[in-house]
Design a protein around this nucleic acid. Structure first.
Lengths: 162, 162
DNA sequence: GATGATTAAATGCATCTGCATGGAATAGTC
DNA sequence: GACTATTCCATGCAGATGCATTTAATCATC
């Protein structure tokens, strides 16, 4: 069972690992230099702000963000500590709770998007034509284990799942 | 300076983050289930085994693997603890040292490649034609901040830089 | 409506990471 | 050759992560 993957497949694997690491690091660094928290915080705030009522169950957030349960739990801790979100009792299911984004949370999300979008443009957009970006999407989607949510994101957004 | 990146660029960014995470996790899980250590160990062992003398300076390893200095230092610690590599004195420069791969290290690298290559085939190769894999390489390379080492890897290898 | 299985969320513990600093050797400058 | 700057590597510490377990509530079945 040796010599399985083609040279091309192996090369693609290596590129995928390297380039993602590079680009992610670059974007995270830009955000950090601008004084912002990690991208995961942005993702969580975005999900919360998108929710019609501004609140989600931790389990839902977990599924949206593709994060392990304990990781979500602790991320929420930090958001709450910083006053960006608040835990609310869940009356229908007393095991659970709701996490609600605060006004400060909404503001931070918007401010971060400004820096975040600039970083995306700098490290991705400026290096690829729109047509090529779409080709890249298509190829990457083939690798995604049915990771749909296929639609392109609405404007003013962005997510990362990391 | 708002609304900078195109929808396409943003979509590509999201795919890149998500798909890489998914694929990496899948491959790491396969390796772990087969009882192997993390991919970073493989990368280090591969670099060492490729060196003509079977030894490298930590600084060189660091550059090859694109890892922070302290991270390399601790990775070497673990390899040495497990008997996969050994530290050797460096006589030309007494600040430094050499790290030499052991026989056990070479064996582990080969065994891991067997599982690793199968995982690459399963999670990448089988989902993309060779032609598409090359297209993907081309697009990703455009994002790499001049992350050359452009040549396709020789057979029986693979690296990841994470 | 009691009982066992399942689900929601938190947390203790060991490990890993990032960051900053430290010590030791070398290189550069005058 | 003394002095400063730089390079190589290790490490203390704080925070983050993975894993397993715990607590509490709900569900399913009888």
């Amino acid at each position: 069972m040796k010599r399985k993957p083609s040279t091309e497949a192996t090369a693609a694997w290596i590129r995928l690992m390297r380039v993602q690491t590079r680009v992610l690091d670059a974007v995270e660094q830009d955000l950090k230099k601008a004084g912002f928290p990690p991208l995961a915080w942005y993702d969580a705030l975005l999900e919360l702000s998108r929710a019609p009522t501004g609140e989600l169950r931790p389990v839902e957030l977990e599924r949206q963000m593709l994060l392990p349960q304990y990781s979500t739990s602790r991320l929420i801790d930090r958001l709450v500590d910083e006053g960006l979100a608040a835990r609310r009792e869940c009356k229908m299911d007393k095991r659970g709770q709701f996490v609600e984004i605060t006004e400060a949370g909404r503001e931070l999300q918007k401010k971060m998007w400004s820096a975040y979008s600039a970083a995306i443009e700098k490290h991705v957009g400026s290096k690829l034509s729109d047509a090529d970006a779409m080709k890249l999407c298509g190829l990457l989607d083939r690798l995604g284990c049915s990771c749909s949510e296929a639609q392109l994101p609405a404007i003013g957004e962005g997510a990362s799942a990391r």
